[in-house]
Amino acid sequence: MITLITGATSGIGEELAKQYAALGDRVIACGRNEEKLAQLSGYNNIEACKFDATDVDAVKQATAHYEQFDRVILNAGNCEYINDARNFDSALFARVITTNLLSMGYCLDALLPKIKSGGQLVIVSSSVTYLPLPRSEAYGASKAGVSYLAKSLAVDLTDVDVSLVHPGFVKTPLTQKNDFPMPMAVTAEKAADYIIKGVSKRRKEIHFPYRFTLILKCLRVLPLPLWLKLAKGLSR
């Protein structure tokens, strides 16, 4: 099996690369961090592929020599918060949308035609899409777009299975900067385990940790005015 993973130099992507390699897959670990890519290429079954996912030409050039993949996992992303919505930071907004959403389109352009018939496309979004949360105007909007994109692809693709991943809080270098509680947070190793098990069963949606995501799914049935009152309390 050949598995390509974007965002493989940190967090969930790094753990996915290591765990799939341990299972015997030939793993193409993609990212921008040369030092981390060099470390990953030291593992059996992992080869590095360096590109910036926000540059469609770079993605195409770096992956041109690969003919076919059994599985593509689009995991690359970043998180920045809008700390003052009244003074909206459009540059930050554009940066997050480009990194999290537009890059998905660039990777799909380059990689989707290379997924073999009967193969799998895995798109990593976030459970932030279940509810509007404080300071999440940029991150939440980008991930909402990612989730809709994955669901639409699941409708239109007839020979590739699409799995959409909605993680809760995961302990990674990216979330270390969070200055708020992260209830029921799991390690990156555990997150990768959840994803691999869900992908092996070809689940359409993979969400975890289940207790946390089920709570969010229940809360989203609340009338919007009621949720907004609750959410405003979270931001204080």
Rank of each mutant, 00 (worst) to 15 (best):
P113A: 14
P132I: 08
V128N: 08
L121H: 03
K116A: 13
T98I: 02
A94R: 02
L131F: 09
V124L: 06
V122R: 00
L131S: 10
S142H: 09
V128E: 01
L101Y: 11
S90Y: 14
G105W: 03
A110S: 10
V128L: 03
L102M: 15
A94Y: 10
N87H: 15
I115M: 01
M104C: 12
D84F: 09
S103G: 11
M104Q: 07
L108P: 02
L108H: 10
V128M: 06
K116M: 13
I82R: 05
L133V: 01
S142N: 04
G140A: 09
A138R: 01
Y139G: 03
S103Y: 14
L92K: 14
N87K: 15
V96L: 03
F88M: 01
I123F: 05
V96A: 05
T98Y: 14
C107T: 11
A94S: 15
N83V: 08
A138V: 14
G140V: 12
S126W: 10
S136W: 10
L92Y: 13
D109P: 06
T99D: 02
P113Q: 11
Y139D: 00
G119Q: 00
P132C: 03
G118C: 12
Y130F: 01
D84R: 13
S90W: 13
G105Q: 03
K114L: 06
C107Q: 13
F88I: 03
G119F: 00
Q120K: 00
V124F: 02
I115C: 11
G118T: 06
Q120H: 04
S125W: 07
G119N: 00
L101C: 09
R135H: 14
P113E: 09
L111C: 02
L133Q: 10
I123L: 11
L112E: 07
I82T: 08
S103Q: 06
S142M: 08
Y139C: 04
S117I: 05
S90A: 08
T98R: 06
D84N: 12
Q120A: 15
S136R: 00
P113V: 15
R86H: 15
L133H: 07
I123P: 00
A91C: 01
A110I: 14
G105H: 07
N87E: 11
N87F: 15
V128S: 06
A138P: 03
M104V: 10
V96M: 04
Y130C: 04
L112R: 01
R135A: 09
S136T: 11
A94V: 00
L92D: 08
R86D: 09
L112D: 01
